[in-house]
Nucleic acid binder design. Structure first.
Ligand SMILES: [Zn+2]
Ligand SMILES: [Zn+2]
Ligand SMILES: [Zn+2]
Ligand SMILES: [Zn+2]
Lengths: 155, 155
DNA sequence: ATGAGTGTGTTATATTGTAACGATAATATT
DNA sequence: AATATTATCGTTACAATATAACACACTCAT
């Protein structure tokens, strides 16, 4: 386990609090199921896979099937409460769900820790280049793979 | 079909020529199968899926199965002859296989045309930010989705 | 020739993701 | 309140993407 030391209970409670808040503001329904899936994603700061969520839900007595979790993920993605990691087919919670935003992800290939960052200039440079070619940008996927500090120290 | 007008026959022949050359230099074996898969990927500048390659190979008489095409893709990726599009589970030919390089992709969500670009500053900005956090970068995935000029003009 | 390494064929299976339909629950309208 | 409408959820079945494992053939070096 990577250290990345912090009070993760607070991390989770802040995330769920933000989620309640933004959903209330938008009239979006954060149902118990959706909230539970979000909570499971926030179980850690590591990339979480859909079928791992499915397993977790299954252990809780319910008989969850794939559509259940994929629908919840669709909702959470639409509300910006989680981000999808394209290069991992996985998901991670977002700390800034209040408004949509461009972002980049640092993904540790050793421990799967995911860090959301916002490097100034990246989105702008891409957008500018695209515009010069007449390309209209609607979304970006920026995922940086490598090794996090904890894993490097351990090695 | 997007216009993106150019002599695509030459496009293909240059790509295959480069492939022969770099493989020869490296002592890598561009077998007939691998070369055929590369040629199929260069059929267009659009994102090509593994199972579409499989279909194409199947139509040519052979009885190709998934491992056949995935192995060929593994080889082509390792040699830098094609790039994988993570957000599409698809593949596209690379024009600069001589040396490994960072790159970004502009992907048209209307016509699936893919353009490989190298925006100066993007890799550097990401690398610098990562380093500041003690994160060691090994690879990047940068995929920009939107609408290409041809598709915008058509609309 | 023997053995190691590589490439390919084949079977089977794992992983990731959707379509479609019905039941139920929340919301809106009368 | 009663009804109509919509959103959510459960369920079955399946589609799409990818890999494991083993067998065989070929090359090259001993
Ligand atoms: Zn975010
Ligand atoms: Zn790590
Ligand atoms: Zn390239
Ligand atoms: Zn287009």
């Amino acid at each position: 386990m990577a250290s990345h030391a912090h009070d993760h209970e607070q991390c989770i409670s802040e995330a769920l609090g933000s989620a309640e808040r933004v959903c209330a503001q938008r009239g979006a329904r954060l149902t118990p199921l959706r909230k539970r899936v979000l909570e499971l994603i926030w179980e850690s700061h590591e990339a979480m896979k859909a079928y791992d969520l499915l397993d977790r839900l299954g252990q809780e007595g319910g008989s969850a099937k794939p559509p259940t979790v994929y629908r919840a993920l669709d909702f959470l993605l639409a509300q910006g409460l989680v981000h999808r990691i394209e290069s991992e087919n996985a998901y991670v919670g977002c700390r800034h769900p209040e408004r949509t935003h461009e972002f980049q992800l640092l993904i540790c290939d050793d421990c799967r820790h995911v860090e959301e960052i916002a490097v100034s200039g990246v989105t702008e440079a891409l957008g500018k280049h695209a515009k010069k070619q007449g390309f209209t940008v609607t979304s970006q996927t920026v995922e940086v793979h490598g090794q996090c500090p904890s894993c490097r120290d351990r090695a």
